[in-house]
Amino acid sequence: MPFITTPDGVEIYYTEQGSGQPIVLSHGWPLSSDAWQVELKRFADAGYRTIAHDRRGHGRSEKTYTGNDMDTYARDLAAVIEALDLHDVILVGHSTGGGEVVRYAAQYGQAQGRVAKVITAGAVPPLMVRTEANPDGLPIDVFDGIRANVLKDRSQFWRDLSESFFGANHGRAVSQGDKDDFWRQGMLVNLAAAYDCVKAFSETDFTEDLKALTVPILIAQGDDDQIVPIGDAALKSIKLVKDGTLKVYEGAPHGIQGDYQDKLDADILEWIKQ
């Protein structure tokens, strides 16, 4: 299997398909590059070199105890892109991965001239947790509860979380296979990484990263996202970027699945061509 080694010695797994301008995909928590299997094929079929990696601690990457924070995730993404010597990159990030690609682009990719465009879907920026500066955010108790459930019985928690993740509890058609695959990917994360990543995605403030972006960004999100509330995410992020396009999907959940996936992928390919 293909791996790159980060500057701090962690092995990061990646997979790629196709050839052409590179599209690099960053997955959400607690998933892996497997979450992008449909996009890997669709985007490769459309003429792009499509690459997805497993975040440290997730999937087939090294099971890490340290470095499970957004700054390190962004450095790991930089290591993947530099190891593969990618240029004119289109970055796509879902959920936690949206924060990862925004931070990478703002702090690494633009300065190196490697990034052409950024796309986020259901992404955590600008900031999820409630603070004095972010009074509309979710209370810290929400994230403490997530950590407690991960620590207590992560296997059952992934099963329970799949319901709201894909919107099955709101009547969306979600197969048992999709729910099972969410559970499968969640069980590949080592506990320390899953636990620490909650702080990374909820308490990292991406406000200055969004303001610093000079490349075009497509900010996509479903308006029935039960995991990352759209009012705290896409609707705030679009006001902070210089060259942004907002796309809201009526009734769509957090997880990229079903008709939402079909529409999002088509819109991504169309927007890239603009």
Rank of each mutant, 00 (worst) to 15 (best):
I4V: 15
I4Y: 04
T5E: 15
T5S: 14
P7Q: 12
D8R: 03
D8E: 03
V10R: 00
E11G: 05
Y13S: 02
Y14L: 09
E16T: 09
S19F: 13
Q21M: 15
Q21Y: 14
P22F: 12
I23V: 12
I23K: 05
I23E: 07
L25F: 12
G28L: 07
W29Q: 04
L31M: 05
D34N: 06
D34K: 04
A35C: 09
W36Y: 12
Q37E: 15
E39T: 11
K41S: 15
R42V: 15
A46E: 15
T50K: 08
A52Q: 02
A52G: 03
H53M: 12
H53W: 13
R60H: 09
T64N: 00
Y65F: 14
T66C: 11
R75C: 06
L77M: 02
L77W: 02
A78Q: 15
L84T: 10
L84M: 10
H87M: 05
D88S: 15
I90T: 13
L91E: 10
G93T: 11
G93S: 14
H94E: 06
T96I: 09
T96W: 01
V102H: 06
A106H: 05
Q107W: 13
Q107Y: 13
Q107A: 13
A116N: 06
V118K: 14
I119T: 12
A121P: 10
G122K: 13
V124S: 00
P125F: 07
R130V: 14
G137R: 01
L138V: 08
P139I: 14
P139L: 10
I140V: 06
G145W: 04
I146G: 00
I146P: 00
A148S: 04
A148W: 01
N149E: 04
N149C: 02
D153A: 07
S155N: 06
Q156L: 02
W158V: 00
D160C: 00
D160P: 00
D160S: 01
S162D: 07
S164N: 02
S164E: 01
F165M: 01
F166L: 05
F166P: 05
A168H: 04
H170V: 15
G171Q: 14
R172H: 06
V174C: 06
G177R: 11
K179Y: 08
K179E: 05
K179S: 08
W183V: 04
W183C: 03
Q185P: 03
G186M: 00
N190P: 00
L191S: 08
A193C: 00
Y195L: 03
K199F: 07
A200S: 03
S202D: 09
E203W: 08
F206I: 09
F206T: 09
L210P: 06
A212Q: 07
A212V: 10
L213D: 05
L213V: 15
V215R: 15
P216E: 06
L218F: 11
L218H: 09
Q221D: 09
D223T: 09
Q226E: 09
I227F: 01
I227Y: 01
P229I: 05
I230A: 01
K236Y: 12
I238Q: 13
I238G: 10
L240N: 02
V241K: 11
L246P: 07
E250H: 15
G251L: 08
A252M: 14
P253L: 06
Q257F: 12
Q257P: 12
D259S: 02
K263C: 09
A266K: 08
L269Y: 07
W271D: 10
K273A: 13
